[in-house]
């Protein structure tokens, strides 16, 4: 049963791309099944778990309840987009270092949500981190090591800031926040 597809001009991970997809497809479906960006996960398909979180213009967004058509005209960054030629995003490193990853299935969404938080509040406190991640369910860790990973990134960000503001630039440009 083919549903009529629409041609969508998206902007994903720093590049424009044209995608044909059924009009009712979500951004998550287009990312996973058309663009093969399988880092964003489907855990519930109804906005309850957060595993599909991506950045839209730098803000955390649940891609499973966002129509792909609604992403037109916005800059979308997925977990894959946080990796640049400069290497892994600081959060991707600290999640690994802190042991925040068990099964890892929620982590792409979690890391993206944490990135949105730190881009807005580079010195986020634990209370602010908890609140920023409240839409992202993790079933393995009890969140303890996730909080520690984000706090490590906060500390590293402060240290990097002392060294020079350019240290955060690759992430900012990847998220579309950079102007």
């Amino acid at each position: 049963m083919t549903v009529e597809s629409k041609l969508l001009r998206l902007h994903v991970n720093g590049a424009p791309i044209d995608v044909a997809a059924p009009a009712h497809w979500t951004l998550l479906e287009v990312l996973r099944y058309r663009l093969l960006l399988t880092g964003s996960k489907q855990g519930c398909d109804k906005g309850d778990c957060g595993a599909c979180t991506v950045l839209m213009d730098g803000r955390a967004r649940l891609s499973c309840i966002t129509l792909a058509a609604d992403a037109v005209g916005h800059r979308v960054t997925t977990i894959e987009g946080l990796v640049t030629s400069a290497g892994l995003d600081k959060l991707q490193q600290t999640f690994d270092e802190a042991g925040a990853l068990q099964c890892g299935f929620c982590q792409p969404g979690m890391i993206v949500a944490a990135r949105a938080c730190l881009d807005r509040k580079p010195e986020a406190t634990r209370a602010e981190i908890k609140e920023a991640l409240a839409s992202n369910l993790c079933r393995c860790t009890g969140y303890t090591k996730i909080f520690e990973a984000v706090e490590q990134a906060v500390r590293a960000g402060k240290a990097a800031h002392i060294g020079g503001p350019a240290a955060m630039a690759p992430t900012a440009s990847a998220t579309g926040v950079a102007r």
Binding site: T78, D96, G104
Partner: peptide, 15 residues
């Protein structure tokens, strides 16, 4: 670190 930590953190890990 876990042997698959970086792959999971970057979305490379295939489920």
């Amino acid at each position: 670190r876990k042997v698959d930590g970086a792959a999971k953190a970057t979305g490379e890990a295939l489920y």
